[in-house]
Design a protein around this nucleic acid. Sequence first.
DNA 1: GCGAACCACATTTTT
DNA 2: TGTGGTTCGC
Length: 885
Amino acid sequence: MINEEPEVIARSAEELLGGLNEQQAEAVQYDGPALLIAAGAGSGKTRVLTRRIAWLLSQTGAWPSQILAITFTNKAAAEMKERLTTLIGPVAQRMWVSTFHSACVRILRRDGERIGLKSGFSIYDTADSQRLVKIICTELNIDVKRYTPRSILARISDYKNGLIGWQERLKEYAPQFRPGVRGSQIGSFGDVEVLYACVYAEYQYRLSAANAVDFDDLIMRTVELLRTDPMVAEYYRRKFRYILVDEYQDTNHAQYVLVRELGGVDGGAAREPGARGAGRSGPAWITVVGDSDQSIYAFRGADIRNIQEFEKDFPNARTIMLEQNYRSTQTILNAANAVIALNPGRKPKKLWTALGDGSKIIGYAADNAQQEGAWIATEIARLAGEEGYRYSDIALMYRANAQSRSLEEALINAGIPYQLVGGTKFYERKEVKDAMAYLQAIANPDDDVNLRRIINVPKRGLGARAEAVLTMFAADHRTSAWSALEALDSIEGMPTRTANLLGQFRDLMTGLRAFARQNDGKPSEIVAEVLEKTGLLAELKKSTDPQDMTRVDNLSQLQSVAAEYEQNTPDATLNGFLETTALVADSDQLPDEGEDTGTVTLMTLHTAKGLEYPVVFLTGMEQGTFPHSRAMENESELEEERRLAYVGITRARQILYVTRAAVRAQWGQAAEMLPSQFLDDIPENLIEWKRRETGVDALRGGWRSGGFDDDEFGGFEEGYSSSSYGSRPRWGSAARKATSGSSYGSSSYGSSSYGGGYGSRGSKYGSRGGGARTGSSYGGSYGSSYGSSSGGKSGRVTTRRMKKDLLDSLSKAKSAAARKSESAAQSGALNVADFHEGDKVTHDQYGLGTIVAVEDKGRNSVITVDFGSDGVKRLLLRVAPIEKL
DNA sequence: GCGAACCACATTTTT
DNA sequence: TGTGGTTCGC
């Protein structure tokens, strides 16, 4: 055991504590079983977490294999690994630093057989799960209009997040129901709980028959495994002596229990007497990091009490508060503090910074969403043109994905390159999903949901009838659809034509499986084979619908993603590929920190959590939009909205914009929108309004109580670009003209040279890391929302296609200028080109040093610096706290 | 079994 | 806005 441990770069206490404030240093060193780091926004929590891990390794004598670090997103995990690598060396790459879900997959792949999961199990995404629920509903004669599969699934998800098993539900509400027995009916029910209980039970039965798990199962079934199998539990408890959880405020009950189980907190085992650190037995040491003010996932089962009651839950727990913020100006923090302070029942916490007041928050009230977008676009052009910001310094945030459209259009009109994060996801596209369904069905023959999805895709004359025959047979024999297909010849009463077609399909799948078996290590070739042999690609290629062109692109992109996975994974397998694709999230497509994409970023506030940008636009600050209308009646949901506002505000480092529209089109209809209450919550003296009132407001008679500004019509256009913000009296003295805003839009943004290149990055999907991007051929235009619409012939679509063409040409003409901006003149980030042997630099910790070598490896460039008495260090330029002299 | 046409629907956030 | 489901005619 000892010998297999690879070396960890030893770090001295001084190194690990260098540059930390008192609280941070205390958190890094804390020596005890349970630690809560209450880390306000921007307080350097990731830094503390990674240093703490390094501390445990080099100062407490822990081994890398004893540590389990859990995050919520792959991106966060990758980032932590990367930072750890610079701190302790390549060992970090092999440590358990992962998301809850992938850690659970890993555990279940290893030991899932103990609870009846065969190792090649499928992971169903929400769409798969919904299909399954729908199938069940139809069979149980449930009115899917009244009880949508979506809502039923949400309920099932609630159960699972709360670790409530289907057995319990069934026992309590429908003990007569027999899952898996065809013809079993719910019977009469006056209580919807009966319905939920039956569907839940049947759903789990089908999942297990298909050797599949859904998202929530990954957590719940891992808990089940640990609880039912003492041997397995013991194994992990001995293994993981230190468990660290990031974003703890977002954990749900199941995840909370998982941590306790893995850590053996309730196991009753005694701590090794006199051991260093957590020793080799007894409860693992738990460190959690979080901010209850940033809990924004309660709607998905996150339980804020987990963090609020940490001290009660874990014996001898210690809490350390991090309140110094290293990200934002005091103005921004004051706004954030003011907003969040209105939430009742929270522990008071006030962020502060040493960075100074900075400029005021800038407000803008537009007449409608188009104008809001147009103004933002002009403003971005100004920031890029006059203030020296890069596009990648700027982010636009909104409450809901639907709001992105008007912003996108404005940016396109202005020729500003942007990148949209989220929205319709790559793996949710029909064509991609179809191809993936084939892969799933190949890998896991029992996977009924995916097999049934593709049985007639592409069209091969196998309709509802054929499917019914097959599933009837399968149900009668309590076997899978695939087995039924194999036993095709013994199915009676099947039309010859159907039998033939089914036979062809069976042979197709058999052939593909054989191919997959022989080429298991080359998923990209399996993808190619599937696209080819199934006719998926051929069907799209022969189509004349322009939409299908992009679908073909998407499929080739899928192949590239597989190729990329293959290159970055030493022991690549088809199953491994399916796994990585099953667990990707929106935020995973975000560029890495410090990378200049040359594009403005658009995303929802939820996706933005954990990120920071020099310039942030919070758009759609209207009642009903944000806070969202559905959240406005319920006090606790409103509190969550307020936390979301807090998250949004604290993303900004230097300049924060808040914008609103007086009229916004919602599902086709225009609606008048009142200003968001959150705008009122920000102290007036922090905001400088470029335009405070809209034409609509004027008619309505002002919106702030008192109506003292009834006559203010705005008048932003005069002069705002000629002077800097900050010191001018609010919406004030500059010459005003009474503009209703209708004349807006004819002005000439777009005329200057800020057009830049578009979409410099290639893949936004698949695995990150390792510089070399393969498959650059699937260029950058994906990610804008174009091409996602369907249908096809209205005039609107035509316009949008034209815009897409515009985008494409921009992307092709990715100018030398844009290329240059990627590698040069990065304010803040450091550039290899600026470093030469012999140059002097200063380092936050080591002080003055001389460069002895420079390795230009693009993003991963390394310089070697001689710090005299502090020694010679190799530093990753991207992350090292150095400054050139 | 298929495709076109129509209609009703719902629209928050997602590991 | 667009999607998904249903219906109808072939």
